[in-house]
Design a protein around this nucleic acid. Sequence first.
DNA 1: TCAAGACGACCGACCGGTCGGTCGGTTGCG
DNA 2: CGCAACCGACCGACCGGTCGGTCGTCTTGA
Lengths: 205, 205
Amino acid sequence: MTAPREATRDRILEAAEHVFADKGYHDALVDEVATATALSKGGVYFHFPSKEDLFFAVVDRLADRLISKVERESSTQPTAIGRAEAALTAVFSALGKRRRLARLLMVQGYSMGNAFERKRVELFGRFASLIRQRLDEASAAGEIPPVDTTIVAHIWLGAINELVIRWLYSGEPAPMEALPILRSVLVEGTRASHAGRVAGEAGNG
Amino acid sequence: MTAPREATRDRILEAAEHVFADKGYHDALVDEVATATALSKGGVYFHFPSKEDLFFAVVDRLADRLISKVERESSTQPTAIGRAEAALTAVFSALGKRRRLARLLMVQGYSMGNAFERKRVELFGRFASLIRQRLDEASAAGEIPPVDTTIVAHIWLGAINELVIRWLYSGEPAPMEALPILRSVLVEGTRASHAGRVAGEAGNG
DNA sequence: TCAAGACGACCGACCGGTCGGTCGGTTGCG
DNA sequence: CGCAACCGACCGACCGGTCGGTCGTCTTGA
């Protein structure tokens, strides 16, 4: 296990994570990643075919970890709405504790330009699904009204996103301070929601 | 009024709006703006000192217009919570009708790199204030609980942001379809919210 | 046992296209 | 004439990606 080959690959990913998080995709130099890995540029290109591939590998790795963590932490709650709320809390506090993770996943990709669109949809789609699945359970269990859970999940995710970015850029409010309000507004709002496509097809996407 | 000087400036801003919205800051070329304005690069640089200044001028111009429009449309409601809801609706549907506006304000700035942070805080802060002011009135009138309206305003704005970006990138759901759910979840959630800094200082931002 | 070759991992100088910005020059209006 | 407005060829820093080469380790076979 961990053949030396994989070990080097991981070191590159680790270094790239730091560099991309600090500088953003565009301003990050492959040479910086190489130096931080104690490798030359050619060495980096031996393991990754392009800067773009390297960036996506970094993002995917972080997203996988975050998603596992959230699934683990939110699975212990007894009620479906409780699991949805736990997922919300887990995503928000994980991002709120690690600036680097948050910067990378929520901000720095855009500097790739329009090539990031696809990845952004996929990435946020995965996060939204985490929440949506729980909301679907809650809806099936009658714990919340039968709204379009995809839209509601994106509303939740968007709220998280904005609070995290604002915290990243301005330092306030501290996530732990904002969390109770976030939870309250979104959970109560979802419980009390009454509009939208109530009947028929909710998941035509 | 509209001295020829200002007229040319406006033509540049108009062209730049298109180019930046399509390509993003980084991938947009000053030469493209010049060509689209039927001007040379030197001509553009006669009116704007740098590409960065030009971009900010475009953003500020659009933000000013959007804010005036929202203020106008949301001021007619009789109740404070009604005005807050109208502001939400106005922002969301304005962005939902004009892809170019939405792309420019919500996405394409990031490709500037970290130099955009400051502007992003300012820009989103202005939009959030639109909502926050109405929430403050609602709070004072006892129409909603005394929560931290700055945080709630950012929750609203974040939800708008995510739904708009998702629509921009994937084409669905159509804003007009999502709006009722958005309104319902956020307004009811704000009405029913109970947690957070209830006492003492709510507006320390 | 050990030279001879093969190979994976890595090096780093270099290439080549790109693009923001400059500047000497031109135009036309008052 | 004089100045504002504009032209467009040119500069030069920048950086992703390439490629011929190196070096240590493994394989082979006599």
